[in-house]
Design a protein around this nucleic acid. Structure first.
Length: 231
DNA sequence: CACCAGGCAAGTA
DNA sequence: TACTTGCATGGT
């Protein structure tokens, strides 16, 4: 929560961004996109696999990779842990970065298996262990991947920040260009109720907004957040 | 053709 | 600490 706070104290935030303002943003997004019901995965294991495969990668390509694993019965803890990295790499090829992602996947699944066993028993209701630190210690799991897993697989109230979150807040003058991951995360978590469903839906909506409207400047006129700034 | 996608780690100065 | 680069496929 304050891992990156060393250099100089930049203003974590602008300009009177309140909880109400954030809820306004949420409401505008819901009104425009509707309920999202993320994460699109059938199991916690599938969710975690997707979290690694989607790193800097279009979700469509991740779906192809996951489909390969499913069709061959490889989407299990034991299969992913025991198969050769080269073979796994070939299966996940469509998701790009396949050599490095094969290793990252195996690192993560081995970590999870070591703590919770092959059926992941106790994973989603593990409130005692320092799960976040554990996830971050895995080579291949950074802040966003760890928080995604915490939010969508372990169902904890953690706000996930991604490239879209940075971009959208910047475009609307709500954060500074170089705000760090943790500054933005604090921003949301300090001003919103600690609610897993809210965080889960909010992040999903931000991704939708980012995909559709905030790719390049200037903002598209039909951006659902257009009136947000002046509200 | 260039550019992007639901990042992360390792290397450099 | 602050940048930069490698990783790699498939869509627009």
């Amino acid at each position: 929560m304050r891992e990156k706070r060393a250099t100089r104290d930049r203003k974590a935030l602008p300009i009177g961004l309140t909880g109400q303002k954030l809820m306004d943003m949420f409401d505008l997004l819901v009104a425009h996109f509707g309920p999202q019901a993320w994460w699109p995965a059938e199991t916690d294991l599938e969710m975690m696999v997707g979290a690694v495969l989607t790193q800097n990668t279009n979700w469509k390509n991740v779906e192809r990779a996951i489909a390969n694993l499913k069709s061959k019965g490889l989407l299990t803890v034991n299969a992913l842990c025991s198969m050769p990295a080269e073979a796994l790499a070939q299966e996940i090829r469509p998701s790009g970065y396949y050599n490095i992602k094969a290793k990252r996947l195996m690192n993560l699944i081995q970590f999870i298996k070591g703590r919770y066993g092959e059926d992941l028993s106790g994973f989603s209701n593990d409130g005692t262990l320092k799960l976040r630190e554990g996830l971050l210690s895995v080579n291949g799991v950074g802040p966003e991947t760890a928080d995604s897993i915490l939010l969508y697989a372990a169902r904890r109230p953690v706000f996930v920040i991604d490239a879209y979150t940075h971009r959208i807040l910047n475009r609307h003058g709500m954060s500074e260009d170089q705000a760090t991951y943790y500054e933005l995360q604090e921003l949301f978590m300090d001003h919103l109720p600690e609610d897993q469903e809210l965080f889960s839906e909010f992040h999903a909506l931000i991704v939708q907004a980012g995909k559709n409207y905030c790719k390049r400047k200037p903002l598209c006129l039909k951006c659902p957040l257009e009136k947000w700034e002046t509200e």
